[in-house]
Design a protein around this nucleic acid. Structure first.
Lengths: 340, 340
DNA sequence: CTGAAAGCGCTTACAG
DNA sequence: CTGAAAGCGCTTACAG
């Protein structure tokens, strides 16, 4: 590698001090018009780019945001990332993404994301344990939670979505409009907060329509295509009767459809299927999926917005609950026009 | 924020010098068993984590790899990222991801990824222009290309996939097994290298079967669901006849299916549809998609492997061409068993 | 508006 | 195997 160009080289060539050059680069203090132009010319000429680590060390600000995700495979995270990146870039923050799924227990002691390399961290769902959350809270280090709320003994801001109401509407639609009575439910991961509230919405809808809750109809779909496919197969093999499936999310709905088709069942004639999220895939399934639209990108945007406020020392709303919306397509049995 | 704990604090408490503590942490030189234990105890006690920027500045190694992607929305990138992250983590490299789509021309002067914050960069397709590529090559800075080959005047290692042969097999299957004669082709983005070679494979298959190339059958699908849907609509509106669609990739195949269904056409009876990549979605489309399996995750893994070798000063193979494979499902007209 | 100089928290020859 | 000290490339009070 060729010799690095330092701020000192720029300063020397411009006949100024490094302090002035630094001020110009960071716009941290006024620099005379004349010198500004001189400096810019030298920077362009030398192709100077500040050394990030030196800036961080000297300023004690990393200008980067850490992201902890369980995995990066779902399209779901694409939308989330878009929201996060859009907001982060507005304030020139860099993103350091850590996908937790791949980390092994052993690696865990090597803290990947923390106060040593970020100004703040956004945590998705349960991808950080309470111990580390507590440690960061004790440090007063900025953290924002997405798709989960703060442990009660801490006080961490969060951005979540309206799961319970959404699912209530969705399941009620199945019951009221399509007369479904035996609605299978593919639950998400055990400790997942979205899963918890979706179950609450499911139970509420049943209760309000005097349909008894039947645990035989509940399986773990894990918000995952293949798991959901197997879950529906299990239901089918056990000869459990159902006239609809609320799959937990869209990916699981896609897997459910597969299993049904493999069993020779028609959708929605034999079994209605509904999902949650309204990801891109939803409209492209066959039949197009009735689902709940959740503002995934907004969640990312808002969480990042909160975090940046926190980093800047401003106060933020503790809990942001974003609304969801019923999107009726055909997989529930509705027959609206195919062209949107 | 509470006062940061520094290596000096650890050293003092352990009754040793910072040099020894540093050597223990980085395993960069032998430390006596006794002192090692003492240091580890203090680290655990104080909850010490080294300041990343200080390490980078002092060692002149960032231990991070830059990734330049056009966008993070497709599931395609999920698989790619998995491969990259798996390999990077093996050598304790951190990932800095920059999605180029969101960057504006103005922002461009602020170089987001480069020698100032990474040890090397992986570039997807054409998300970095020749000018910057040249600058980095001049610096002798490690760069690896994915899904594109090096500009001829440079000499940058790359990892690409066998597009031409794959498509040739796919289109030949359509012609030989299903008797297709008018195969529409949804091309990818203009300057995209994958798109270029897929067209070459398409033309070759036609040529080998004495079917004239008909430019009326070619549209831009842009490797994108919605664009592809509109492209097929255009074809339909122009009353152009076709008995099959090679959609360019799986996302575009999904969009094509939508357009066909909206027009009341049956798949594959009226029109066969085939894709490329064999992403997760492919098996879940209805009917399940016949496509070419490309080793997306492998591409990421190999590119990262190459980059790390480069960073370590080792020499690497200049061009790695990974094989692809025909996956026959039902959207082409084949009637194999649905259960795999 | 500008500069001299201390300091950010590490690593690493060098010497022992 | 260990330590004293220079140095990595910036930023930022402080003084003017």
């Amino acid at each position: 590698m060729r010799k690095r160009i330092r701020i000192e080289d720029v300063a020397k060539k411009a006949g100024l001090s490094t302090a002035t050059v630094s001020r110009y680069i960071n716009q941290s203090a006024a620099v005379s018009q004349e010198n500004a132009e001189k400096i810019q010319a030298v920077i362009d000429d030398l192709n100077y780019v500040p050394h990030a680590a030196a800036q961080i060390l000297a300023s004690q600000k990393t200008m980067t945001i850490g992201l902890i995700f369980p995995s990066l495979t779902s399209t779901f995270f694409g939308a989330l990332l878009r929201g996060i990146e859009t907001r982060a870039r507005k304030d020139d923050f860099t993103l350091l993404i850590h996908s937790a799924e791949i980390i092994s227990k052993k690696t865990k002691k090597r803290r990947v994301l923390g106060e040593h390399n970020t100004d703040g961290i956004i945590v998705f769902s349960d991808s950080m344990d309470d111990e580390e959350l507590t440690r960061l809270a004790d440090l007063n280090f900025p953290v924002v939670l997405m798709h989960r709320s703060s442990p009660t003994f801490l006080n961490i801001p969060s951005v979540t979505i309206e799961n319970k109401n959404g699912v209530n509407k969705l399941v009620s639609h199945l019951i009221e409009v399509h007369g479904c009575q035996k609605i299978a439910f593919l639950r998400g991961p055990e400790m997942h907060e979205d899963a918890y509230w979706r179950e609450a919405g499911y139970r509420k809808a049943l209760l309000e329509h005097n349909i008894p809750f039947d645990s035989d109809l509940v399986e773990y779909g894990d918000f995952n295509t293949e798991h959901a496919r197997l879950a529906v197969k299990r239901l089918l093999n056990k000869n459990i009767e159902f006239d609809a499936i609320f799959a937990g999310d869209d990916d699981a709905a896609s897997g459910s459809m597969m299993a049904l088709r493999e069993a020779g069942l028609r959708i929605p004639e034999d079994v209605a299927v509904v999902g949650f999220d309204d990801q891109t895939i939803a409209a492209h399934l066959s039949p197009p999926l009735t689902t709940i639209r959740s503002p995934i990108e907004q969640v990312g945007f808002q969480a990042t917005d909160k975090l940046i406020h926190l980093i800047e020392g401003k106060s933020v709303e503790m809990e942001t609950l974003l609304p969801t919306e019923l999107v009726v397509r055909h997989s529930c049995g509705c027959r609206q026009d195919l062209n949107k």
